[in-house]
Amino acid sequence: MKKLLTAISVALFVGVTATPAIAGPAEDANAFREYFKKRFPDIPFDDYINGVYAVNAGAREQWMAIEEFPPYQIAIDEGKKLFGTPFKNGQTYGSCFSNNGVGVADEYPMFDSKRGEVVTLELAINECRVKNGEEPLPWSKGKIASILAYMAFTTRGKKIDIKVPDDKALAAYEDGKRFYYARRGQLNMSCAHCHVDNAGNNLRANTLSPALGHASHWPVYRSSWGDMGTLHRRFQGCNEQVRAKAFKPQGKEYRDLEYFLTYMSNGLTWNGPGARE
């Protein structure tokens, strides 16, 4: 265990010192895009929102057939119904969001400077419930995923434009970035090892999806789950696959990670909900 911790702290240290003082989020995002442009010269920037299907033509064909009758449609319908159903006090979800909650999922994840933390759409949904005297929903699947699916669907077509407004926001962004590049787990891998360095390569028969565009299409109906899940559910799965202990959904670690990862996709189009293998 001590060795593991040492390995992680060394990775963290390297991550910090490897960042030149002048580089900020905008430079990072630009370097990210340039890296993928070099790695996949034939893939148009806008196609990265399609994840692994941007880099694997065979899988793309199957996926397009699935999209004819999307498995997430039921969730959108259920989400719309839940979203429009008043709480016991007569208020609705819409009262907690701008534009009555329609087409505004792109405002999240956002850094709330007053609170000094990243607020995700899941967090905003559950805080809306609690404010109106309801119990919060479980974080990773089920009803919350359906509400997310409806809100994402009404936001389709808008551009990802995450902001880092101040120094506290920058600190959250840097924490997310450090998480992304830090080795973890018994298998000693970082997120970037698979989804940056080896994007497009095969792990056994599975193609590794590129990190660029990873945040555009949530929640996702994942065939291997058999239902809808959130981005943080996927983070947990990835962490467990490298034999690391997963963090709690909507804890600071994953909210900061989502903040960094979504910022990296700035300029791409929101296209949630999605369907994946």
Binding site: N198, N201, N202, L203, R204, A205, N206, L208
Partner: peptide, 16 residues
């Protein structure tokens, strides 16, 4: 090993 490495006889190997 075959998750990442191909070798003679490997079934559906990776190429990492």
């Amino acid at each position: 090993c075959f998750a990442c490495h191909d070798y003679p006889g490997a079934v559906l190997p990776g190429n990492v």
